[in-house]
Amino acid sequence: MLAQVVFYVFAAVLLMSAGMVISVRNPVHAVLFLILAFFNASGLFLIAGAEFLAMLLVIVYVGAVAVLFLFVVMMLDVDFTQLREGLQRNAPIGACVGAILFAELVMAVSNWTMAPASAGVSVQAVPGLTNTAALGTLIYTHYVLLFQACGLVLLVAMIGAIVLTLRQTGSGRRQNIEKQHARTREETLELVQLPLGENVLEQGGFLRPRTSYYEIAAPGSYGSAEQRKEAEKEETGA
């Protein structure tokens, strides 16, 4: 009784939010409704007793995929009025494509039969296991090759995405941590011996340090020769 009520609530919210995904104007709201739909689907899995699939749906789709989706949609600069503009003009074409797809789907599903060869391949889950353990034995024991093949397809997709976005311009400022760690005292620090009292300048009754340490600075480390001469002139007021 209670399970039935909960089922109808989840199913109704799922269908409603799925409808909202394609009908709301704001794309961010659409993604948020999509997330709500995922959530309710996972609730339906829970009612069906497939708790592992329910959690996985939330972790993978809501926790990772939809986050990136939302991320991209939020960053897009979408002009809402422009989005609505083509609707009138494109509606007949869209309806046409939709009708053809729907007709094909009906034709395909009404003639659906399992290939006789597939009956020998399918494996029944061991009864008495929790569904996590049952899924584990099915995927990793009986269908391990298919599972590996799926993994390979995903790997190819991942490498493709990386190759598409990777740009080796060589210009950007990058931190080379190994290089920083390998720095020694010799190439970083320079100790200079300041002669006592030599670099103090009497100015207006105060003793001040000079700003142009040309006598003691390493050659070339304090600007050009002209700059040093200018600074010296400024300081002494000559």
């Binding site: 592992f52 809501v62 926790g63 939020m74």
Partner: peptide
Amino acid sequence: DINVGILYLLAISSLGVYGILIAGW
């Protein structure tokens, strides 16, 4: 005391990002 407790925790903690993302937007 559910069978997939740790997955539940992982799922809930992965949802935490939405609060922040929605607040920011």
